[in-house]
Amino acid sequence: MTAVEGEVEETDPGDLEVITNAIKQVGINAGSTLVGVAAADAFNEYVPEGHRPADFLPGAQSVVVCASLGPTNAAWHSPNRRLMEITGYDFRENVSSIVVAEYIEQTHGYLAMQAPALPTSGQQPPLSMMLSAVLAGLGTRSIAANIILNPTYGLMFFAAAITTMRLTPDHQLEENVCPARSCVRMYEMEGKTPCMAVCPADEGGCLDATIEDGQITSSFFDRERCSTRAMNFGIRGHIKQVEILTGIDDADERRELIYSDDFRRNMSSIGRYKESVSQCFECMRVCPVGRYRRKLQ
């Protein structure tokens, strides 16, 4: 095992659970709503080499996954739907994962780093935060764009810290969170769930699935279509506009596009990425998982 310089604390297996819980608490104090732990070698069964924790940190033993809620409940309830377009989330889980990594290095003397989650080639992330969350017992995949749903909170956002420290891993959830019971009933009556109804793949939407005996037996997600809607503004929108601009010969026409509201919103979305990651939340808006928690006074 590789360790950082300085006094390295030997972890007594008997104390592992106590130490693990203390590390989780550090993550929660730093802003996470939930923190889970996955064993680094648990990834081997699901992803190829190049996408496993040890590919980024040799000797990796554990992945600490920090989860936070996205927009506040008030934002979900806002009568102005465009508010959610630019109040995506505040990256608290990222801050939390960095704090956790620093804590592990400084307190326990093991190497720890924030896991790389942003795509560096195509749409594949170096390390999948969705898989990390599943392996850390924080949720399961759903019909709605494969989004990981936590049984208590529904949609959450994830970041992780990879460490060479051995910690007590959490168990994966034994039951799938999706479909919820009310969705199963709706499917039996109408042949679709709330998320499928709001964004049906065969009617210009992104989602489809079949359910038997309360379990998902097949699911379809049109990722390309979804990404153009969920990320209508931002990097992709800007790239598309630059492509269009290079194909326009007329200077006035180019000017019209450069100073259009659409162009400005793309730039704003890039510049204020923290506030404006995605612009479509409709499948999650109708999802019953964790919905009761969004009902306040």
Binding site: L83, D261, E275
Partner: peptide, 15 residues
Amino acid sequence: GYYAMNVPTSTDQDD
């Protein structure tokens, strides 16, 4: 348990 939102400093449509 009351609703609360931080109003975005970004702008809406038409800036």
